[in-house]
Design a protein around this nucleic acid. Structure first.
Lengths: 230, 230
DNA sequence: AAATAATTCAAACGCCCGCTTGAATTTTCT
DNA sequence: AGAAAATTCAAGCGGGCGTTTGAATTATTT
């Protein structure tokens, strides 16, 4: 009998390490167990022995990151709230910076891998991932949403819902193309940009987007006068 | 067998139409040729006969949309520029609204399918799709970037580069998850949201994000948790 | 050291995939 | 109408997939 949380076996760790890289690169559906076990130098059957199924392996890969990141998010929220009861939108989203960089310290490319996995899970798992996160980390996410609401109390809940997912999309796509984008940035603008640099470019964009005025109506472009950000 | 009404050879069109719907529902990798040909009431081999391969079928689906969308983008840019030589960022991005909605009028789920195909080509096929688009529609895209620059002449080219890709990411992820997001929106906020609604929620977010003030520096969060722009 | 449990292993199973084949059929051309 | 070209068709190919199996091996317990 094998315990779920027994991490003494290096085989299990090796599988997780290999799987997360391949999942982030090619997606869940296009990453075979054979590719994972080959990269991990492990027998094919080991995945089903240790994880039961491919589906469970995917969930365990994400679980490992969430267990590191979410407590740090909780901590950063506490730090922010102890300093200010009326945070700016920029401050609100900045509580995510340290938790994201923590993943990068945990393992190479950790931030990029996690965010890409998050994106894959959102668009490929029929909402299963969202339910898992809400069940296990719903309270922390609730605190985060609360901070965002403090930063812009005028924002309607439904509008906030959409904009937070816009923010996720910005993150996911940017991380998925981070290497290509960094290369172009270096070649065309002589600007070396690492993960930390990308995150600090993302925060102002996401903050301003989330705090943007809501469109007045669903009418045509011509009628809308210049509504700009102050 | 002789038909009373000769529908001529609509096999190719039937395949394209069926493929689009299934691509939108299940994604490209998880849509088999057998599912497509079954839905289209067509023989399995017809796909390879008319398109050569599944990959070419996907490209042909995308090509059909580009041929409809890009001329409309060009037209909308002309309309905007004839009305104002100093467009707002909101107006600049709004030139995409009508072209995107045009795709949805052309075919069911057209907008979603197109944007998702765009996202695939961006992160997958080694820039092959990107080269195709730049070769065939590079001039229109160049005009679009010019309009964005008019909306915010202060924005440094390298920063504009990043933010335009942030914008693409927001669009791609949102469209890729549009069904899931719409379902949640309907369940949690009793708000029915279609593609048009999503687009009109995206434009203010992207506009504000792209026009956001640039972060002062890339300093560490730990030292100054209250770092803010204003 | 023997017994027991945990793990690894090679091999295979059944399934679905994209794609091909060659003959049958329909359409087009002369 | 008859030849030629285009299209449709049923059948099957090779291959990769997730998963299972039962034996071999290693680790743990008694």
């Amino acid at each position: 009998m094998k315990w779920v949380f027994d991490m003494s076996s290096s085989t299990k760790q090796d599988i997780l390490d290999a799987a997360e890289v391949l999942f982030a690169e090619h997606g869940f559906g296009d990453t075979s167990l054979r590719a994972i076990t080959t990269k991990a130098n492990v027998n094919l059957a080991a995945v089903n022995y240790h994880f039961g199924s491919k589906k469970q392996l995917i969930q365990d890969v994400l679980k490992r990151y969430l267990d590191v990141m979410m407590p740090e998010v909780d901590k950063q929220i506490s730090v922010l709230m102890s300093n200010s009861s009326t945070p700016s939108m920029h401050q609100a989203f900045s509580v995510l910076v340290e938790p994201l960089l923590l993943l990068n310290r945990e393992r190479p490319q950790g931030t990029s891998i996690f965010v890409r996995l998050l994106g894959r899970g959102y668009s490929e798992s029929q909402g299963h991932l969202r339910k898992y996160i809400m069940h296990h980390w719903g309270d922390v996410l609730g605190r985060f949403v609360h901070v965002i609401k403090l930063a812009d109390p005028e924002l309607a809940p439904s509008e906030l819902f959409w904009r937070l997912h816009f923010a996720i999309g910005t993150f996911v796509f940017t991380m998925a193309s981070s290497k290509a984008l960094s290369d172009i940035s270096a070649a065309d603008y002589q600007q070396q940009v690492d993960i930390e640099g990308i995150i600090h470019r993302l925060i102002p964009y996401i903050s301003a987007g989330t705090a943007a005025p809501v469109a007045a109506s669903v009418s045509t472009i011509k009628t809308t006068p210049t509504l700009d950000i102050a």
